[in-house]
């Protein structure tokens, strides 16, 4: 699905990612954990195509295509989705209009006809249920005046609507209480199939109780310093990041 090789990236001349190697196959969930400042969000931003980041070395292939040469919109149209850590409020643009535009631009990219109004509404209804998003929110402006939890649920709702093949969840658990966390995780689990993959970026093990990863990677100082199965997350939770820090600080 996605193949990241020796990825280096800088922001304002400062190198943040220092050689990431990662292979994610269809049907897999990978968790990326790591202390603050390790480069987790930079990795998600670089993959989504945020312009503030400069890739200085390495390559990323997404379903066989060179991801780094694509515009952010083409990455999304190819099936990549980023659930933002801090979803943006866009006053004046309704959620519905926003999603309809997105779906139709993706369909047009694939050479498909625009979605029928009634099919679109049925889809909205079905996916709202999945993340228990209040119907009123979908008619409001994108994220405007939403609570932190509503914003995160709206991200998962958008993901459900767009049906990406590869989704990155960037600290989707931050700022969520346990009930909202369960709803979000439940949404993700229902969307998971053998044909898509997830990269779950998180600071805490908590989310991984509900979204069970196939692999866990620890990112530290711009590199994946340790990979393992879900037990690694538990280990990390018990010992904290200090051991990792002290071990790799000295190298």
């Amino acid at each position: 699905m996605i193949s990241i090789k020796n990825l280096h990236a800088s922001v304002n001349g400062k190198e943040i990612l220092k050689g990431i190697n990662l292979e994610i196959k269809a049907g897999e969930i990978h968790a990326i954990m790591g202390p603050n400042g390790s480069g987790k969000s930079t990795l998600s931003s670089v993959l989504a195509g945020k312009e503030d980041y400069e890739v200085t070395e390495g390559e990323v292939f997404f379903n066989g295509k060179n991801l780094l040469e694509m515009s952010p919109e083409d990455r999304a149209r190819e099936g990549l989705f980023l659930a933002f850590q801090y979803p943006i409020e866009i006053p004046g643009v309704s959620n519905i209009n926003f999603l309809k535009t997105a779906i139709n631009e993706i369909r047009s990219y694939k050479g498909q006809e625009p979605i029928e109004a009634k099919d679109f509404l049925a889809l909205v209804k079905e996916k709202q249920k999945l993340v228990e998003l209040d119907a009123k929110l979908t008619n409001r402006s994108v994220n405007e005046g939403f609570s932190g939890g509503e914003k995160k649920r709206n991200e998962i709702f958008q993901m459900a609507m767009l049906e990406p093949t590869f989704a990155i969840l960037d600290e989707t658990d931050s700022g969520l209480d346990i009930d909202a966390l369960k709803i979000v995780a439940n949404g993700v689990n229902k969307l998971k199939t053998n044909n898509n993959a997830f990269m779950v970026i998180t600071h805490y093990q908590r989310l991984l109780d509900y979204i069970v990863p196939d692999f866990v990677h620890i990112l530290y100082n711009g590199k994946i310093v340790k990979s393992g199965t879900k037990e690694l997350a538990l280990e990390l939770e018990a010992k904290g990041y200090d051991e990792i820090k002290s071990k790799f600080e000295t190298i």
Binding site: P72, E73, R75, L82, F84, P91, N97, F98, T101, A102
Partner: peptide, 22 residues
């Protein structure tokens, strides 16, 4: 906001149009 819209598959011109209309 522009990046957020693009990250959902909306092209540059449409994204700007949506924001200006808003």
């Amino acid at each position: 906001a522009l990046f957020y819209l693009k990250a959902r598959g909306i092209g540059d011109a449409s994204a700007k149009k949506l924001l200006l209309r808003a």
